[in-house]
Design a protein around this nucleic acid. Structure first.
Lengths: 358, 358
DNA sequence: CCTTCCATGGCAAACGTTCTCCGAAGACTG
DNA sequence: CAGTCTTCGGAGAACGTTTGCCATGGAAGG
């Protein structure tokens, strides 16, 4: 039953392959009678076009390569899902490659995907600096959109959450909740999420407390670091020196911090509030559930998909576009203090979708 | 720089395309001198073979389709990662499709992937019954391996964890820990994981307590059900009627149960032990960390990849193979009772890799 | 009525490989 | 030394599409 070709359909419907191709592609008008005969034959024989042959001829595979650092990073599965939805809606298939946080493997996957003639690439770079060369090389060959993280200025178009806006939402919320001694628990390094969230904290926390911007502990984006940070910041300190809010750079850190705080007998949020960033599923499962900044994942995916088409590859391409989408605050138990009874459930969704050229 | 073809290499090295193809593929011996010239030209021009053309001619795309129910199910990211590793090691690319638990979407993805001429399919079926027809149809066209879940007998080769063995490990461990009033919190339905784990519990729990096999609560594989189950089983009951161990059918249920137990002030594991299944990352993050059964994910992936090649498609194919891999118990805080000081850290790894024909 | 022009359909050349023939040598064997 | 084998290289036909170009025929316009 399988392997019916255009040729077979042509024979069955008594016309030529060209005609069949045309009625199927609609690339040129075809007589009504012939068209009907062709469609009948297509139906009867169960013809299915061969995408490989089509790709060879038309120089377009309808395939997008997706390269990411670690699918096990809990933020990525939802992103991957939304991406595949957006692309499949457009009849495009997704070739997946996980590079295990290794820029070398990433480079290998990029060139393997190019060898497979992907139409475009979606890349969440593994490293701000070390990913740069390979990504730039790939971007010179096909349209390429960076997702979630950057890798140096001017390398390619990019789509990410507006980290500064997200952090501002957090600070504003904590201010309303009455927190005054903030402490940031973040990640060191120059990766965009780490740097931007830290910078936004430093820029915005001063309003509440002139000392806050300096109160920063840096590690990495992990649960383990969240626990360790609490040991450094909280454990064995007099109550007066303890912060009344831990602003964590992502949800993993927040969950780790929360866990250790509870083990130390601290009252969250009574004694200290905790916030995260990203809104991974775990944030809602923690106890208490973590107030966090929800990334507009579906919109990020849609935007990335949109960007993929309309960029001519090569030098004549205009300046790189960098799209930042506004996130949304999700208030949960880890910050709703008993005193503040009017806890706002969530800030109304603003979506100023900043579009700027780098 | 791009788009160097065999033809270009042939011209540069002063021989024919056939010869170039041969030295690259090694499909036939070629004179040492010519081979060297060809290789030099390949190097100089930076030739990269076009996989699309190759696929069209050789009728093999080197591409595997992977269809799964929900990438956001926390068990799948690791599985996907291991699968991509295993397949990439073999120079095969992975086309990913997420069907959002919808058998209809699943059927659509299967046929879309077949249209794209995938060499084989890896499927985690969305539904035990409703996935059957589409999967069977696909299996008739290309080698197809079912992963993690089944979808009726005899549909295709399958690879999964040995659920019965895993449940046996749990029961044995709980026996050693001194638990006697067991209760199973599982999922209803006929899906293999749900049914097999339930059956194994019912078969094995009687040894500890003749009443235990009957003590079963069924919902679905979710955190919410874990919470709800505790409300039904535990809350408002006299201590004598309460179980001293909750055997959960997966980690999500266990985490939900744990959360509610803690909210109700129950002492875990002092008062009641809790076990999970799968060993998703969350199991280790819960507080207390959940004792669970770790699926041999890397081995499952490797086995699936192995099965893909060596199955001739069509009727002459032998009986369906069903591979079950032995899991391993991971003991954590949710079951190590203070009284039992000699808590075994983990059972030695047995891997009897049952291979049987259905 | 003859020209010009659409509207429609077919032929055949691509796309970049792989692989089957064939032919021309040189290396053996009898 | 003639015949047969083996070894290496090239020509060219596929693989299943898309598409530029030409042919045909009828309609429209002069």
């Amino acid at each position: 039953m399988a392997d019916v070709t255009l040729h077979d359909v042509a024979r069955a419907s008594g016309c030529s392959v060209s005609t069949v191709s045309r009625v199927l592609a609609g690339s040129r008008p075809v007589g009504a009678a012939t068209a009907a005969r062709v469609r009948k034959a297509v139906e009867d024989l169960g013809y299915r076009p061969n995408h490989v042959a089509r790709a060879l001829r038309s120089r377009s595979t309808g395939t997008i390569g997706l390269v990411l650092p670690q699918i096990t990073n809990p933020f990525y599965p939802t992103l991957v899902r939304e991406l595949t939805y957006a692309l499949h809606a457009d009849e495009r298939a997704v070739l997946l490659a996980d590079c295990d946080d290794d820029p070398l493997a990433e480079a290998g996957h990029l060139s393997a995907l190019l060898d497979r003639q992907v139409d475009a690439l979606l890349v969440i770079p593994a490293h701000e600096q070390h990913s740069r060369a390979a990504v730039a090389a790939a971007a010179a060959r096909v349209p390429l959109v960076l997702l979630d993280r950057g890798c140096g200025p001017g390398v390619a178009d990019s789509v990410a959450v507006d980290n500064a806006a997200g952090m501002a939402l957090v600070l504003e919320h904590l201010a309303v909740e009455g927190c005054r001694r903030l402490c940031f628990v973040g990640a060191s390094g120059t990766a965009s999420a780490a740097a931007e969230r830290r910078a936004a904290y430093e820029a915005g926390a001063g309003v509440l407390d002139p000392e806050a911007p300096g109160r920063v502990a840096l590690g990495d984006f992990s649960v383990a670091w969240g626990r360790a940070a609490v040991d450094r910041i909280w454990a064995g300190r007099p109550a007066a020196e303890r912060p009344d809010a831990l602003v964590c750079a992502n949800d993993l850190i927040a969950v780790g911090a929360l866990q250790r705080l509870r083990q130390l007998g601290a009252d969250v949020p009574g004694e200290v509030a905790v916030t995260g960033f990203d809104d991974i599923p775990l944030a809602d499962l923690a106890d208490p559930a973590v107030t966090t900044v929800r990334q507009p994942v579906a919109e990020l995916a849609a935007e990335a998909a949109r960007l993929l088409d309309r960029r001519p590859v090569g030098e004549q391409a205009g300046p790189r576009r960098s799209i930042r989408l506004a996130p949304r605050l999700v208030v949960r138990a880890s910050t709703s203090r008993p005193s503040a009874s009017h806890t706002p459930k969530s800030v109304p969704r603003t979506r100023p979708e900043t579009e700027s050229a780098q």
